[in-house]
Nucleic acid binder design. Structure first.
Lengths: 115, 115
DNA sequence: ATTTTATATTAGAATATTCTAATATTCTAA
DNA sequence: TTAGAATATTAGAATATTCTAATATAAAAT
């Protein structure tokens, strides 16, 4: 992964890196929602929700269509967002390795034929 | 997703949310590496690498075994890390929805029987 | 024992993110 | 055409993150 790509991807990750934004994304994964819907769901102000939606829009994670004065938001890269949310909700037990396991791996890179 | 869970998950995401840390994780996905290996690969100081490794350790994403004065780092939740890296490297074209699509979806929530 | 090698920690300045308060925009309905 | 409803934007204070410089620790080699 080169420097430029790493920066791009980190920017994308940052869009996910806030509790309110994760909750907004999780809610949008269930269906289209307007800001009023989210206000009922989240313990934060309308202004703050709009600010977080702006971050999500700039990251290309959500889009919206107008519905009168309201805006109906939806996931614009559903597979990416749902994939990340699924990984976060899955259980990933921490593995510990011993010196011996590491030594053996040095001849057997991860993803190689011995896996 | 409730508030506590959202906070926990956002903390985890933050560990990924830095270009240098993404590169460290990508490198560890290829196999065990010590800090010296990473110094050769990354355009940052040893101190900075150690600081980022400390963030990754606190998030439970990496572990290490001693090898003399060196520390060999490895992914302690490889499926989580590799899953996130795979999602980030995959192409996820942005979809735009029309008013009509949204209207239709209102009776057909995402993930429901009509998908 | 001392030096060298490998890595970690700490303090603080620089920078970026987040939230609050005030205000603006845009559409609809009266 | 004005008022109300829904949402967005802006400025700035509060907070968190990151980097640099200096220093510490721990094992190995001399």
């Amino acid at each position: 992964m080169d420097t430029d790509v790493a920066h791009e991807r980190a920017e994308l990750v940052k869009a996910f890196a806030h509790p309110t934004r994760l909750r907004i994304l999780a809610e949008l994964a269930r269906g289209t929602r307007c800001v009023t819907d989210m206000e009922e769901l989240l313990p934060v102000t309308q202004v703050n929700i709009s600010q977080h939606l702006s971050v999500l829009r700039n990251a290309g994670l959500v889009g919206f269509v107008r519905d009168g004065a309201a805006r109906c938001y939806y996931l614009s890269r559903p597979e990416l967002v749902e994939g990340v949310l699924a990984l976060l909700s899955a259980d990933h037990p921490v593995v510990r390795k011993t010196r011996e396991q590491i030594d053996r791996e040095k001849n057997r890179p991860r993803g190689g034929p011995h896996r």
